[in-house]
Amino acid sequence: MPADADPSLPGPLTDATVRKVASLARLAIADDHVALYQHQLSDVLKYIERLRTLDLEGVEPLTHAGDTLNRMRDDEVGPMLTNADAIALAPESTGPFIKVPKVIGDGGGA
């Protein structure tokens, strides 16, 4: 086990963990799907445990295969998406705005 791994992790993927993760992921999963996801994700996490057999001491994480870090360019105005084209994609709109449920209390309006 690598030195930086917490031996208490991961705990078993409980019913509550699945609900918590779904909530973080902004997914309203149905109650009758929780057990299935719990089972399937546990299988995958169990498989992933094999990574813990490797000695990763001193290994730098590789986030990206490319060598490019930042590419600088002049800040010039190019062809842009127009408001009309953007609004045309929205499921609900009013005038030049996208419509969503109220996020401020009564009378606030969105």
Binding site: P2, D4, A5, D6, L9, P10, L13, T17, V18, V21, A22, L24, A25, L27, I29, Y37, Q40, L41, V44, L45, I48, L51, R52, L54, L56, V59, E60, P61, L62, T63
Partner: peptide, 28 residues
Amino acid sequence: QRRIMLGTYALSSGYADAYYNTALKVRR
């Protein structure tokens, strides 16, 4: 949805090092 949940879990506070960062080291 499964992959979004797996990814959310792997990046979530307290688990990112055990999962995501470990995977990036193996990638190296």
